[in-house]
Simulated assay, not measured.
Amino acid sequence: MSVGQYCNREVIVASQDTSILEVAQLMRRHHVGDVLIVEQQREQNIPIGIVTDRDLVVEILAEEVSPDAVTVRDVMSPVITIPEKADLWDTLQQMRYQGIRRMPVVNEKGGLEGILTVDDVLALLAEGLTDLVKLIKHEIEQEARLRSKP
């Protein structure tokens, strides 16, 4: 199972010169908790940072910094990327080791292809567990039908 199979391909991006207000508005408009900061290189979006809703609260609001006084460049965190062909379970181990909840997924040239988040993985696991429960229920029902025949 590769990361590319399970990552979210709809990623909201901005440049490092984007205002904090614009980033917050992007998050609200698209109902997301992060915006990837990219740099255009060789006609590809190369991920260079990330701004999360938590960054806005902790770094701007809690510190009473005027959103007009800073840009994304001032608050973005660096990102660790993962190739889209990387193994999903190895990637989860790396995320746990690094203490990160979001990891941009890139192609062989470093261009942005998607993002893998803890939320995506939880949804995948929940779906898998639901399928297992359905399998067990079906098996029990099938066995009951077979045994109830005269």
Rank of each mutant, 00 (worst) to 15 (best):
K85T: 15
R73I: 00
D17C: 01
R96M: 09
L36I: 10
L36W: 03
Y6A: 00
I48F: 06
L26K: 10
Q5V: 05
D87S: 15
S66R: 12
C7F: 07
E43A: 02
S15T: 15
V72C: 05
H30S: 06
S77V: 00
V13D: 06
I80H: 05
A14F: 01
V32I: 15
G33Q: 09
R29M: 02
A69K: 06
D74V: 01
V72E: 04
Q5C: 02
T81L: 08
T52R: 12
K85F: 14
V3S: 03
D68I: 01
V70R: 11
V35F: 08
D17N: 13
R54A: 05
V35Q: 10
A62P: 00
Q44G: 00
Q5M: 07
A62T: 02
S77N: 14
G4E: 09
P47F: 03
T71M: 04
L26P: 01
G49Q: 04
V72K: 02
I82E: 14
V11W: 08
V51P: 12
P78L: 01
T81M: 08
D87H: 08
Q41T: 06
A86W: 10
P83G: 02
V51R: 08
Q93L: 15
D87L: 11
G4S: 10
M95Y: 11
Q41P: 00
I46M: 07
A86F: 07
G4Y: 05
E22A: 14
V32D: 04
L21K: 14
S66D: 15
V3N: 01
D68Y: 05
R42C: 05
M76F: 03
E84G: 03
Q44V: 03
A69R: 04
Q5D: 12
I46A: 02
V72Y: 00
E10L: 06
A86P: 11
G4W: 03
E39T: 09
R96H: 13
V35R: 05
W89D: 12
N8D: 10
T81S: 13
N8Y: 03
I80D: 08
G49N: 04
D90C: 09
R73P: 00
E39N: 09
V3W: 01
M76Q: 07
L61F: 07
V57A: 15
A62K: 11
N8W: 01
H30F: 11
L88S: 05
P67W: 11
S15W: 15
Q25H: 14
K85W: 14
E10H: 14
R29W: 03
T81D: 07
L26A: 07
L26R: 04
H30T: 04
I48W: 08
W89R: 15
Q25L: 14
Q41C: 07
Q25Y: 15
Q93M: 14
V57D: 12
R42Q: 10
I60H: 07
G33W: 03
R29K: 11
M95I: 05
L21F: 13
D55V: 07
I82R: 11
I80M: 09
V58Y: 04
D55T: 04
D55F: 06
A69I: 02
I82V: 15
Y97H: 14
R29E: 13
V75S: 04
S66P: 05
P78H: 01
I37F: 12
K85Q: 09
V75D: 03
T52V: 11
I12S: 06
L61P: 00
P83S: 01
Y6R: 02
N8F: 01
Y6I: 06
T91E: 04
I37C: 07
E43K: 11
A62D: 12
D53H: 11
G49R: 05
A62Q: 14
V65D: 13
D74Q: 10
